[in-house]
Amino acid sequence: MSKPSAEPVPPGEPPPEISDEDLLAESLVTPERFAAIFDRYAPVVHGYLSRRVGVLADDLMSETFLLAFRGRDGYVPGRAPVRAWLFGIATNLVRRHARDEERRYRAFGRAAGRLEVTTELGEVAGRVDAQGLRGELADALASLAREDRDVLLLWTYPQLSYAEIAVALDIPVGTVRSRLHRARGKVRDRLSDRWLTTEETA
């Protein structure tokens, strides 16, 4: 008769999720494994792209994963997460559409200038404020140098780290810092003081 265990039986745990890096490595011999990378990241990559280029994101998201699949043997494990690598590819694709992106910001700013119909006076005041902010913001984003905007938006939307952005854009970390500092300063200069606080987070 076996002795009863003194330790409680631990609850069943799900198997550890396969890491992105392992999936990518496995996809070199079993290409179908790359589909799991797509399933994990297609929505967030699309979200990032669509904030930058609108409906063009539908095509660019697809192209991002096609390029990633074709170039997967160039991914260097340990240099940056797969996620950062994918956002780097997506950002390179956005560069081809810089004019579309700038047009999107201008359209965003113009839309901010139109007051929507509402019956609530309080809403009107809040909306006018929000619209004023959006107009300034659109102007600020459109005015940034392309390289600075890439860094700013990789920091802001997918919230990559300095090191991850450096790998994603293939630039030194120091360059990431300086571009982010410059972009942030330009945005701050374009926005009215009433929108911003002075906390330092980057």
Binding site: A138, T156, T197
Partner: peptide, 11 residues
Amino acid sequence: NEFTVIREHGP
């Protein structure tokens, strides 16, 4: 800050 403004009020 600028990042929150972009996330919450940008496109």
